[in-house]
Design a protein around this nucleic acid. Sequence first.
DNA 1: GGGAGATAATTAACATGTTAAGTGAATGTC
DNA 2: GACATTCACTTAACATGTTAATTATCTCCC
Lengths: 154, 154
Amino acid sequence: MREFSRSLPMSLLRAREAVMRQFRPSLRSHGLTEQQWRILRALSSVDEIEVTELAHVAFLLGPSLSRILRDLEARQLIERRTAANDLRRAVVSISAKGLKLIEAVAPTSEAIYAAITKRYGARRLAELQEMLGTLEASLFEMASPEDAELESDE
Amino acid sequence: MREFSRSLPMSLLRAREAVMRQFRPSLRSHGLTEQQWRILRALSSVDEIEVTELAHVAFLLGPSLSRILRDLEARQLIERRTAANDLRRAVVSISAKGLKLIEAVAPTSEAIYAAITKRYGARRLAELQEMLGTLEASLFEMASPEDAELESDE
DNA sequence: GGGAGATAATTAACATGTTAAGTGAATGTC
DNA sequence: GACATTCACTTAACATGTTAATTATCTCCC
């Protein structure tokens, strides 16, 4: 069997951790986790957005998003209202306080990203991202693998 | 500011999730999480290993590893003893039952990996992994970013 | 050889990942 | 127009991620 430390999942995990390790201290100093930052970033680029779509954009599962929104709302970094035409749906937007926080974090964040780009190479970075996108698209078409071992159980 | 959905951390996160989504159903059908599988895989390639080194190899933080080892030991998938020359250290090894479980999971796991490789292309996959390794190495040298915003606080 | 500091592992506390179950509202069907 | 179904979101339950604090042991230096 393959040396698992050289497997694709491990390569991706280590690479991502190496990247996030650069950003976490800055986010932490502003009282934000990585996921909270993702949500604020996503909200800052739209006027308002429904919870389900936000989950898709920020790449978070519903339950995680529910908890984080509850926290961000309590900290008054976001605002939430119910959609008029469909009472099931909630619509979220970033608050003035939230925007201010983003403006405070963004410079450091941008500087770190620039440092990474410079060190790794802008061209190489673009190429890497393209390959990652292609990988994602390839696997999306593989769909959910109907695991043969489950057939008799469910 | 950059469209965050096109940021490097998000690209890596989505790619990894796309990969793991292929493996999780199979692991789950055998009662294993991704992390438990990583530990068993790591243990299967050595005779025995100290906990700290296992954490490094399986890329898990100490506290996570502690909890998982407790569980795996209770399920008798691994064995643990104390190092004779240093009572602080624990030495872990896989049990016969653990090996048997690996043998049960491996075929499906290998088949999935082969399918991914075929679909994405073996050459491209190797290239991707090399680029990920280079990225990791680049960032390792950036070391821990002494966040200027923290200097006055700590 | 005894005490200060370093080290290995665990525990604690809180945030998120993951799947299943629950709640309330909309939709289609008869 | 009741009712089963679907849908959006939340809550529940358990596993892991993350940092800090604890505990036990070891090492070094005097």
